[in-house]
Design a protein around this nucleic acid. Structure first.
Lengths: 219, 219
DNA sequence: AAATAAATTTAGACAAATCTAAAAATAATT
DNA sequence: AATTATTTTTAGATTTGTCTAAATTTATTT
């Protein structure tokens, strides 16, 4: 199926939101895509007519099987390019997202499969998110947001919800990266902020906002 | 300057046609871009308003300094990606054009300069065309179409005008590639076809059409 | 359950890039 | 030089993706 860049962005965003939050609605998708709710409705109709989405007016929407397959293809491309940019071109892991966002729309299957082989068929991208294989299979990791991690429980930072640079800049500042060993020392109910300890770093406090967007493997 | 994909394609095409043929006109550009003359006129106005083109109604058009600079950036990206696809991903040199056509529109300078370094700052792409450097400098090679090569003169195949797969398929069949040693044995005035000899291959005859689109270094 | 608030959709407009068909300008030919 | 042919441009329409503002539907409160 040939999709426009815009259609691809919507599909990918819906997929990503469906994973991290149960219910996706028009407004949250509009905020996520930095566009108006009216535009979302327009595109939902279009994706429905292309049979990629189940959608009932005012009721809700959800990618169907075909939509999921398309999403996984796009995500595979995105994550392979991110891996390439870090592993081969030596870019910083917190700066590759925007470039991958453009590269992901080049859809030649031969290109992507050769790239995959060239990179050694990596399992995860530099943010710790799994890379779907050629047939769309993803290893589902039991990640959870840091805010849901039990107190004093050791865990490994697995990924960061990839909306924008700002959070990554901050994490870099604290010395937090994918694979960092992390532990929550104290939780402040007032604003959801957490006192945390990263291995080999001083203790520090991060906001509730940050704690929602950092994901960990809880072993 | 931020340019749309379409604007980039027009600029690149104008640049390429200006190199290979003296006068570029509305109709030939329309044929080259597989679009209508009316669309060409529309875009010429737009590029003029962006000060990338000198253009007078009915009179003609030509990239100005700024337009040339933009063209060279796009061509640099295109050729670096072609090199990457062949050298790193092992793709066939006659199949990389279309994919590079898409990759070239990803315009992050950091990406392109890192890619350049990663590839070892190559001088030419797999078709033998020179890759502009970061500042837009191109090594101008004294290429000529095979049809203009003197009889029995040894030369090296340097490039192939890159419009489409068809010609490349044929060249592959004859065993002609970039770097092949080539000599014209006989020229048939009737239809411009040439009897040629490629080093370590049997003699063969190619059409006048082909002889116009194969370029050689004439030492 | 009525009133108010929030979320979603429609209606109508706009910009970009394209098209066809007709008009205008330039070039070629008799 | 008058006519014909070619090239180029205009006029007006279309598609895609977006917008704002208004209308509609659903959810929440009082």
């Amino acid at each position: 199926m040939k999709l426009s860049e815009s259609e691809e962005n919507y599909i990918k965003s819906i997929y990503n939101l469906q994973i991290k939050t149960e219910k996706v609605n028009t407004n949250s998708l509009a905020v996520f895509l930095n566009t108006s709710p009216a535009s979302i409705t327009d595109m939902l109709k279009k994706l429905k007519s292309k049979k990629l989405l189940e959608y009932k007016k005012y009721y809700g929407f959800r990618l169907n099987e075909a939509g999921n397959t398309e999403a996984l293809k796009i995500i595979r491309r995105h994550r392979l390019w991110e891996f390439f940019l870090v592993a081969k071109l030596g870019m910083e892991w917190d700066k590759v997202h925007d470039i991958a966002e453009e590269l992901e729309h080049v859809s030649s299957p031969e290109l992507i499969n050769r790239l995959d082989a060239y990179l050694g068929k990596p399992k995860t991208d530099p943010h710790g998110d799994p890379i779907p294989d050629e047939r769309g299979k993803v290893v589902l990791l039991k990640q959870k947001p840091l805010k849901d991690l039990a107190m004093k429980q050791n865990a490994i930072v697995s990924s960061v919800s990839s909306q924008g640079h700002e959070i990554m800049e901050m994490l870099n500042h604290y010395g937090i990266g994918i694979g960092s060993q992390i532990k929550v020392l104290k939780s402040f109910e007032f604003d959801g902020s957490l006192q945390i300890k990263i291995a080999r770093k001083p203790e520090c406090i991060i906001s509730g906002m940050a704690a929602q967007n950092i994901y960990v493997y809880d072993n």
